[in-house]
Amino acid sequence: MITREIDKKTIYSYLEQVQDPEVPALNVIDMGIVRDVLLHDDGCLEIIITPTYSGCPAMDVISMNIRILLSTIGFKKIEITQVLSPPWTTDWMSEEGKRKLRNYGIAPPNPKQQVCSDKLFAPNEAVQCPHCDSWHTHRVSEFGSTPCKSLYVCDDCKEPFDYFKCH
């Protein structure tokens, strides 16, 4: 049975079970896409989420998975609201999330850099290889397998890898 006493912290810990379908190493809390959890007086549980990119196809699946999880736990009235402003940024990704990404083989986003500027032919960001820790890497493509990643290759271990680009 769910009572009104249930607190936000508990809900957040439930939400840690919802994975990002495109980066299964991360859950929605690691990604920083859960913006708030509201328990309304009428018993409705509202989860406020924000998309990473406007066209992120994972958002619909994520909303559905949150709904399924919470109703399995026993919540009756669930509302999932999407907000756009302020826009999501990789700064909201948790340190735990960055560590998990690295272990999964994806280079985590660097702390904020100038990549989001409109400066042309800007030098590549220095990105550390998630396989061998070398900084001797170069960018192959600014765009990768999903909108949030770009493609890099390590010049030491020669492995290609995804970089979760700063946004």
């Binding site: 998309p51 990119y53 406007s54 907000v83 756009l84 402003s85 302020p86 826009p87 999501w88 989001c116 500027s117 409109d118 400066k119 042309l120 800007a122 600014e142 765009f143 909108p147 946004h167």
Partner: peptide, 18 residues
């Protein structure tokens, strides 16, 4: 809000196409 969100993406598009 839509503009603020989209601008980050369009900044990439403009740089890439330029």
């Amino acid at each position: 809000a839509i503009a603020e969100k989209s601008l980050k993406e369009v900044t990439y598009h403009l740089r890439w196409s330029s």
